[in-house]
């Protein structure tokens, strides 16, 4: 009874992990696609935030379900990924705007 339950649970975890990985991949591709278009720089940064931060976080959650032996490092990767990428988007936006606001002297 118990092993069957455990096997069922692990099968459920596998399915959930596959779903999360696929969803993350969809976010990746959908978020990277506007980079090829002609939108403004800041609009592209919005989409890049979706693809990199949110999509990669979903993928890391999927990996966490599948690979529980190394959970501390995966959790650290998740935490640092979300914080770094978000702040990185802010730095890219702020730096490019500052360069545009103070045009170089002729």
């Amino acid at each position: 009874m118990i092993p069957a339950l455990a096997a069922g649970f692990s099968g459920l975890a596998q399915i959930a992990s596959a779903l999360l990985l696929l969803l993350g991949l969809v976010f990746w591709i959908a978020g990277s696609w506007p980079l090829l278009g002609r939108g403004s720089y800041l609009t592209k940064l919005h989409y890049l935030g979706i693809s990199d931060t949110l999509g990669s976080a979903l993928m890391l959650l999927g990996l966490l379900l599948r690979f529980q032996r190394e959970w501390p490092l995966l959790l650290l990767a998740l935490l640092s990924l979300v914080v770094w990428n978000t702040i990185f988007g802010y730095v890219l936006a702020a730096c490019s705007q500052a360069a545009r606001r103070f045009p170089p002297a002729p």
Partner: peptide
Amino acid sequence: WHRLAAFASVSTK
């Protein structure tokens, strides 16, 4: 700037 953003994204990916 577009290049820098794309490179950062490549690094994460």
